[in-house]
Each structure stands twice: as C-alpha cells, then as structure tokens.
Design a protein around this nucleic acid. Structure first.
Lengths: 236, 236
DNA sequence: CGCGCAAAAATTGTATGCAATCCAGACTCT
DNA sequence: AGAGTCTGGATTGCATACAATTTTTGCGCG
C-alpha cells in the first residue's frame, strides 16, 4: 500500500525528503489539520509519505527544535500543545523582535520587495473574502507569511530564522486560543505597515508592528483552563 | 510538570547519547579545539564516541540547527566558518535581545539567582588569572555562561534558547575574529550588570548590556579578508 | 608534464532488523 | 470489587546493511 502518487508529495523534488516532510507536517500543524497533542507515530508518518522511519525521525527532530512538536523519550512525538504561559512568551518575543525587523526592513526595502509584499497582501485579501474553516486556516498561515517576508527584507538571516519559529508557533497558538480567528491578523494593519515601509518611516513601521502584535494577542483567550489535562489528547 | 532544566547541565549524560555528543562537540567548537571548516565525518565521530552513525547524525543535525556546523548534502558536516557578515548579524541580534533580557531579569531576579551569578563571576575571575591558551578558551565559554544565566533569570524560555544559539555563535566568532581574546568579554562589565540587577534598575542593566556587546564587537576584526577561500579548510 | 576520464575507495543517505521500553488488558490475590 | 502484577503487542532507540553520491586514484593521451 505504498503508492507513490499520494495527494501531497509533489511539492519539492526527490532530494532531501526529510525537509519536505517537515514542511508538510508544519503546514498541517499550523493550520490545525493536526490537532495539538496528536501523536505522530514514526511508522504511520513514514507509511503516509512512503519513506522509512529514518527520514521521518529527522523531520520530527527538526520540528521538535522548532517547538512545533514535543518529543518524549521512548514515547514518541506529539503535536505541541502550548500552554498559555508559552503563548505569552511567544508574543513577548515577537514584540521584541518584530519592531526591529520592521525598522530594518524600512531601511533596506526595494521596489521588488514592495511588489512581493503587495502580492502577499492580495493573497490575504482573497482568503479574507472566502468563507469556510479551510479559508480561515489558510488565512492564518498566509498572514504569517507576510511577517516572514518582512523579516526577509530586513536582511538578518538569524532573526529571520527566529521569526520563522515564532510565526509558526504563533499560528499554533492562534489556532488554539483564538476567539475570532477572522481578525486574528488584522489585514489593514499589514497594509499600514507596508505603507510606512514605502515611506521609509522605520520608526512608524516599528510602532505599527507592536500594535499589530498587541491586537493579535488581545484576540486570544489565554486564561488557564487546563483542568482536564488528565490526558493531553484523546485522539490517537 | 517535567520541565527539565534546559540551560546547560544535561543531567546525567548516560541517557540520550546524541544530546551528550552534541554538547561535547559544541564545547569543542566553541573553544576552538575544532577549527572552523573541519570536517566532522560521521564514521570518525561515531568511532570516537563509540556509537553508531545514527546517533552521530542526530547530534550533527542539532548542531546544524544551531548554526555551529554547516552540512552539505552528500558531502557531510563541517564546523561552521561564519563570515564577517554573519558575525555582524549575530551581534545585531544580540544587541536586540540582550537588553530586553537584562531588563526582564532585573524585574524577576531572586536572591538565589544573585548567588548563582556571583559564583559565575568568580569562575570568570579565576580563569582571568590563569595563563595559557586553554584558559583563554575556557574564559570565552565561561563568559558566555554568564549571559545564559541572565537569560534563565529573565524567565522566557524561547529567548533563552535564542540566546543559547547566539552565545554559542558569538564564541565561535570571537575565536575566529577576536584580536585580544583577553578583553573579549570585559569582566568588570559583567559585574556592573549584576550590580544594576540587584539594584533593580532594569533600564541601566539594559544599557550596560548594549555597551557590553558593543565592546565585545569592537574587539573584533571583521574586515573581509577571505581571499584564500580556495579550500575552506585544509585539516582533514 | 599536465589534462581529461574512468574505475575504485570512501562517505553520506536510506532502509531494515533487533533489543529495550512502554502501554493495555487480563489475571490474581486480598 | 479493587488494587496490584504479569504478559503480549506495539513503538521507539540504536546498530547495521545496502544504495546513491562524491572524492580520490590510476592511467592513457596530447
């Protein structure tokens, strides 16, 4: 039952399959097709992607480093289930890093960058118009891509990688604790940030970024309500 | 709540051998017993630690994520050889994160923390007194531990992990580009920062942290002089 | 003497087998 | 019945075997 032509795959080429699996799993986690706490059995994942456990393990290790899965020795890997405290730390970190990223981006942005960013905003717009849970999920991920694009423009590869992790974890947090997924990442705020960037107004871009993050976090319900942590998850 | 002490420690190295190997390799890289560009052959490392290539690969993958080794597909893993540009990015990132860490630490520091930090400073003092290249190397690493301790006190696990990576890469950069390894991490500045912390003066602690990083970077020689990049390394 | 070029050697990428560990459920004893 | 214990099955951790790829070596030729 290992038929190669599976729905996914197709994505990147045959080379570096563990990276490909990592990305697909990450996407699935981020838009919550995989619920937090879900067990990611090596054999099962391997069968799904038609690879051996070896490469699955590599992918899971990467995701573990990113904080998207939690691994327990001799027990396996599970989709991360961030606590409210961890969620706060994620947003604290973003509040620290993103304004600096925005400011740096303002100083380095090029016309080509602007084009890319506008395209990104259009993609958001489109999803915003659509209805349905699937669109909501894609919206969260797409919205995160805007922030990553910004970090790319900023030109600091290390901060970009940090941002990748933070954005991914944010998506997970939003999916978990978000009240109105819709306004999760106010679209107009992205536009305002972009406007500040093209004006070359780094300071304003930074401020807007902070406000933006505050708004996102304000939409979360981070009350400690984990009384029923008897079993982290119940879906095998 | 199985929240293992993340910072260093590593508990007993007996279990999880890949983590143990990762730490030993990291230490070796940081104090430059392993020169940048050195090839880390899986078989060789495995023989050295008496484990199979499987666990070596896991360790190398982790180090690759940390930016301490660079892996090329089908070619292997090499000790990272950061460019001046990467070095600047490391310090830019630290200038961004560390003041916030210091400020947060000032707000949360406890008496027990102060004791730990003082002990750390004493260890630095001792190494500062010793002569020899080995002491210099240990000094760089120990000095970094002060910063990590600070990040632990700050209480944000995510930023702590970022700091771990940044400090490790800094050590590598200092070893590579440092002029006077001795003053690489002015000891008195650590003391000043600690003093600000016990005063509860977060703002001052933050400022001192920035100055401190500036001093470290000022001691580097980051001119682009990589003309002889014919072979990244010559020591097999 | 240097320059391609092909085969061998070495090294990494992946799959698979085995031992150790964990979990679920049946069983026993009180 | 309830609590503890034991055993069977499943899953992970690790080592090893094999395939794919790169690097080196050896050789003939200009």
């Amino acid at each position: 039952m290992n038929f190669a032509e599976h729905p996914f795959v197709a994505a990147s080429a045959a080379e570096d399959r563990s990276a490909s699996i990592r990305e697909q799993l990450r996407d699935a986690i981020i838009d919550r097709r995989l619920a937090p706490g879900t067990k990611l059995s090596e054999a099962e994942v391997g069968e799904l992607f038609a690879v051996s456990r070896t490469v699955v393990r590599a992918a899971l290790q990467m995701l573990s480093f990113e904080g998207l899965v939690r691994t327990e020795r001799n027990r396996g890997a599970f989709v991360a289930n961030p606590t409210p405290e961890e969620a706060r730390q994620v947003f604290d970190s973003r509040r620290l890093i993103e304004p600096a990223v925005a400011t740096a981006a303002a100083a380095r942005i090029t016309a080509a960058d602007v084009v890319k960013l506008r395209r990104q905003l259009e993609a958001e717009d489109q999803l915003l118009g659509e209805r349905g849970a699937l669109a909501r999920r894609s919206e969260i991920r797409t919205s995160g891509d805007f922030h990553l694009l910004l970090a790319t423009v900023a030109g600091n590869g290390i901060l970009l990688r940090f941002m990748e992790e933070l954005v991914a974890r944010s998506s997970l947090v939003i999916a978990l604790y978000g009240r109105t997924g819709a306004s999760s990442c106010g679209h107009s705020e992205h536009e305002q940030i972009l406007a500040a960037l093209v004006d070359g107004d780094g300071a304003r871009a930074g401020e807007l970024a902070v406000h933006h993050i505050n708004h996102i976090e304000a939409d979360l319900d981070l009350r400690d309500v984990r009384g029923l942590a008897l079993r982290e998850a119940l879906a095998p």
